[in-house]
């Protein structure tokens, strides 16, 4: 027998907590993915170019 018995409320709320966790993980993946897409997709070059710079800082 385990030392601390899991309370019923933890079992009951497992689904909700899992859902929130997955949503947060998806948010991180989206922000990361968008950053990669923007940096490699030419948006950054365009923005820096119009500001008078280049990606490599020259």
């Amino acid at each position: 027998m385990s030392l601390s018995k899991q309370h019923e409320i933890h079992k009951r709320r497992f689904g909700r907590n899992l859902g929130v966790g997955l949503v947060l993980a998806a948010l991180i993946a989206i922000v990361f993915g968008l950053t990669v897409a923007k940096v490699t997709g030419g948006d950054l070059e365009g923005a820096l170019g119009s500001a008078g710079g280049t990606v490599d800082g020259n």
Partner: peptide
């Protein structure tokens, strides 16, 4: 009291 909370407590699907 516990069982009533259990019945009416929102699950993730309810928020969705």
């Amino acid at each position: 009291f516990d069982s009533r909370i259990h019945e009416s407590e929102a699950q993730f699907g309810d928020y969705f």
